[in-house]
Design a protein around this nucleic acid. Structure first.
Length: 170
DNA sequence: GTAACGATCCTC
DNA sequence: AGGATCGTTACA
């Protein structure tokens, strides 16, 4: 099986990591030992306390503190009372950043993909270097992608809403 | 305590 | 266009 992406892959700036994750494979190992592989097709970057669309813009809270850790771990949170969002923390410690996984080749939609992979709050803080149930490999199919503004952040104001920080495989 | 609201999705 | 559904957050 392919090698896991190294820690250094995730500790770079989120604006580098988010597009670099396109085409990479999420490996999910279920409780029964069943393994499934999913190619990432769509990501979004959330960057720092100054980014009004980023949860960390409200400062460090019980929910967002995981984003202040060193990159390479998962940040899971519940939205609209029923959908878990899967995010990958990036950057260095005390530099809150995360990549929202918005779509896979076989599933589109951040809520649908976590339901499909059976991911929930118990994965918050999961370390992609050492986890036995989820990790990401980096065999290097280079992919072409396009960028668009991020989705669902009307509240963040025009300046942050227009940033082309959503990355989609062509 | 209390209230408002969301990095969504499905059904009408 | 509207409802589901509840943790997180801000404020009193």
């Amino acid at each position: 099986m392919d090698q896991r992406l190294p820690k250094e892959f995730y500790t770079r700036d989120v604006l580098e990591v988010a597009p670099a994750l396109l085409g990479k494979k999420i490996i999910r190992k279920g409780a029964s030992g069943h393994i499934s592989v999913h190619v990432i097709s769509e990501t979004e970057a959330y960057r720092g306390t100054e980014d009004k669309a980023c949860h960390a813009s409200k400062g460090k809270t019980p929910r967002t503190k995981i984003m202040f850790e060193t990159g390479g771990i998962l940040y899971m949170y519940l939205i609209y009372g029923m959908y878990w969002m899967m995010n990958i923390v990036t950057g260095s410690r005390e530099e809150p950043q995360a990549v929202l996984i918005r779509g896979l080749m076989d599933v589109s939609g951040p809520g649908r993909l976590t339901r499909s992979l059976a991911l929930d709050g118990s994965f918050n803080g999961e370390d992609l270097q050492f986890s036995e149930r989820i990790w990401i490999t980096g065999d290097g199919d280079r992919v072409e992608y396009s960028t668009t503004p991020r989705v669902g952040i009307d509240y963040a104001g025009a300046h942050w809403k227009m940033k082309p920080w959503r990355y989609v495989i062509k």
